[in-house]
């Protein structure tokens, strides 16, 4: 597990960038946490790390946005799914078990459909004081050896300020 506090949207994006650089074909990353906690911003960083050139916009309405980077990049947002079973209708297996990297916003809504081997990232808005507006606690919970390693690597890269 790795826990990082970011002080701005820019920092969250930077963290995403570091993760993006470590991701490989077939990786699935589930993002969980509050509305406005920085999931999309983080995802934009991940996309940058994966060398996606396009703007990464919120897929809330289209549910899935697809990009071409170093690898195909699938950006899910299941916020407006009322029933997790609706995921079946999206042909999600093609993405989760496909040739690219998948990131899922609001992954808690489809917990049962997440692959056993995945990385979960939790986002918490920290606002204990009135002045804290952009502080976030971001927690990485690897669910496989592959991701334990990736998170170790991430820790090193973030720590070195690279």
């Amino acid at each position: 597990m790795l826990e990082i506090t970011t002080k701005s949207a820019e920092e969250s994006k930077r963290l995403g960038f570091h993760l993006g650089k470590l991701l490989k074909k077939g990786d699935v990353v589930g993002l969980m946490g509050d509305l406005g906690a920085g999931k999309t911003v983080f995802t934009q960083g991940v996309a940058e790390g994966l060398k996606v050139k396009d703007y990464v916009t919120s897929p809330t309405f289209t549910l899935i946005n697809q990009y071409e980077g170093g690898l195909p990049f699938y950006h899910f947002d299941v916020y407006r799914l009322d029933d997790p079973e609706e995921l079946l209708d999206l042909g999600y297996e093609e993405y989760f078990y496909g040739e690219g990297v998948t990131i899922i916003e609001w992954a808690e809504k489809i917990e049962d459909y997440l692959p056993y081997c995945c990385l979960i990232v939790y986002f918490h808005r920290l606002q204990e004081k009135i002045s804290d507006t952009d502080t976030r606690r971001i927690v990485f919970k690897p669910r496989s050896k592959r991701f334990v390693q990736a998170v170790e690597e991430l820790k090193k890269n973030v720590g070195s300020g690279d």
Binding site: L35, T40, V41, Q44, Y55, T57, S58, T60, F61
Partner: peptide, 13 residues
């Protein structure tokens, strides 16, 4: 174009 959320989406959220 928008770089993140669409205008209507922010209304809904």
């Amino acid at each position: 174009r928008t770089r993140d959320d669409a205008a209507g989406e922010v209304f809904d959220k």
